[in-house]
Every structure is written in structure tokens, then in C-alpha cells.
Amino acid sequence: MNLGRVVRLLSLTLALFLLMPAVASFAQTPVPPGPNTLTGPDVSNDQLLLQQLQGNLHGRVSIPDQKSAMLIQPEGQDWRALRDGTLKTVSAVVLLGMIAALVVFYVVRGKIRIDAGPSRRRIQRFNGMERFAHWITAASFLVLAVTGLNLVFGRWLLIPLLGPEAFATMTVYGKLAHNFLSFPFVLGIVLMLLIWVRHNIPNGSDIAWIKAAGGLFSKGKHPPAKKFNAGQKLIFWMVVAGGGVVAASGYVLLFPFAVTDIAGMQLAHLVHAILSVLLIAGIISHIYIGSIGMEGAFDAMGSGQVDVNWAREHHSLWLEEELRKGKAAGKPPTVGRQLPAE
């Protein structure tokens, strides 16, 4: 290599080195929006792009499913913001608020005891089929609730505790359980509707029960009720009607685009999420009353038999009907109020 070629090469290298800052500065300088003969209107960010689109952006596909041609749906941005922002915040407030309210109620009111004390007489409240319908619905709903909440809050709550790999594995199996256990949940809803609908028609005794708040806040003052009181009727219709809509919207999501388009699926997702949160909050209160909140309440769905004194205080009208049929078992109680003659 001669000396002149070396000098020219060094000069060119030095010139490029000196021009590099100017090139970098030019590349980083934002171009103001304006018409472009090659690409059309210039777009500097995603939001401006969506504004320029003014609707969905579709491409062209050669397969029969034309829905796959949709590239951008601007409304999806609003749906995602609502799902990941407002909906998640409100859901947390509703669920934590219900738990906090029950804790306060338990601290102030305590366990609701049988005022007359337990007797030695039991009466059949729910038979085997009734308990089967209840427990298949309850068990499947609990799994559906936990796996559904995991999809909403799990990434935020569980990944720091379990790590991403364990969380991913748990979520995959949880999603499978969520999908398949929806079927026994629906079966339970149908069974409960067929078995109990005639007992859950509102009547005049419900008004008195509501005025007295079910006697939950006052000891020794239990309004009369038939087989189901107004509070239980509310839970019944919440599970049957609300659970039915939750299941229907869930199947819309489980079988995408079978009955609606993307906008309909987004609406189904919001309906599914909102009603599910309200249903979970209501069931939390139901679980509380049926377990630690009220003495003798769990027996109704445990053994199927309840204490006669418990039945008299919480379902006196129903007890009177059953006693006339001679369905109470055991000896009369030695304490508390005496039973009417059979």
C-alpha cells in the first residue's frame, strides 16, 4: 500500500468520526407531524396512530376466517384500561370491604347463639339430594372463584412469593380447572332451581324479616320465616340468576367468536368479571353465617338435621308446618320454651 492511499484512508476515517455526532443528533430529532409522500400522515406515537385510524384497522387474509384480518381495534385500548385499572381496583375494594365488614360484625355482635340453648330434638331440614345440589355448586364455585381471582390478582400477589415458573404452572392448571368445573357448577344451579324455586318466591313474611334485619343485630328478636328467609332468598336468586349469567358470559369467552364478535367478547368479559366479584362477595357473607357466624347453622347442610330450638328461632313458620307433620325427633327439651303439642 503506497503512502497516498494510506493518507486518503486516514482522512476518510477522520471525516466519518467527526460526522458521527451530527448524524446521531439528526436521527434523534423528532419530525413534526405532517404529510409524507411515501407513508401518508406522519404518526409520532401510538395514540396519534389510533386517532388517525378512526376505527378498526384491517388487513387482507386468504383464509376463510375474516376476523383474523383485524390488526388494530382502538376500542380495545379503553377495554384494557378499564380491566387493568378501574375494574381491578373496584374488585379489590368490594372483596376486602366485605371481609372487613364481617370482621367488624363478628367483633361487635359475636357468634349468634341459640337463645334457648340447644335442645335434644332434631328435625330434618335438607335431604340428601338437596345437600348434593348445594355442595356440588359450592365446591365448584370455590375453585372457580380462586382460579378466577388468580387471573386478576395472581400476577401481582403470587409471582413475588412463588416465582414466575411456579406461578405459570399453577395458572395453567388453574385455567383448566376453571374451564371444566364450570359444568358441575351449572348442574348445581339447575338442580337448586328445580328443588328450591317454590320455597324462594317472595312473600309477606320477607317484609317483616327485612324490617328486623333478620334479628342479626338484636339478641332474642328473630322474625318469623318459612323454609328460607329473605336473606337466604337473596342468596338463592343471586346464585341462580347471577351465577347463570356468569356461566353464560364465561362460555362466550370459552368458545371465542362462536356467537359474537370482538366487541361482544369484551362486553362478555366485563359482565363476567363484575358479576363474579359481586357473587364472591355475597358468598363470603353466606359462608360466614353458615359457619362461625351462627350456632347450629352448618348442621343444615352438614348432617341435614338442625336443632329444634334453632329452627324455632330462625324458621318458626317452617317449623310449625313440620311439627304438624310429626317430623321432629328425640325427646322434648328440658330447658327453654316448650314445644307445642303434636
Rank of each mutant, 00 (worst) to 15 (best):
F217L: 07
G244N: 04
P30C: 10
A268M: 07
I159K: 02
Y288P: 05
L12Y: 11
M265T: 06
F105Q: 13
R155S: 09
P256S: 14
R121I: 01
P164Y: 08
N203F: 02
A92D: 10
E130K: 10
L158D: 11
F228S: 02
W209C: 01
P164E: 08
G244A: 01
G242S: 07
K227M: 08
G330H: 10
L270I: 12
L49C: 05
V252S: 06
F255Q: 10
V43W: 05
L96I: 12
E313S: 02
L96Y: 09
M70R: 15
G85P: 05
P332R: 09
G296S: 15
V252A: 06
L95D: 06
M238F: 04
A15E: 02
L194N: 04
A212R: 10
D46S: 13
A116E: 15
G290A: 13
G264I: 00
S291T: 15
L279R: 01
R155V: 03
L19S: 09
S140L: 05
L254Q: 15
A328E: 13
T169M: 10
P164N: 08
T13M: 06
I136D: 00
T334P: 00
V146D: 11
I123R: 12
L267S: 04
V172F: 08
P164W: 03
V107W: 13
L71S: 07
G34M: 10
E322H: 00
P184Q: 12
M98G: 04
I201G: 07
G76R: 12
G215C: 14
R155M: 06
A341T: 14
L279Q: 01
L102F: 09
G304Y: 06
G128T: 14
T260N: 07
F255W: 14
L191K: 06
W310R: 04
H286Q: 03
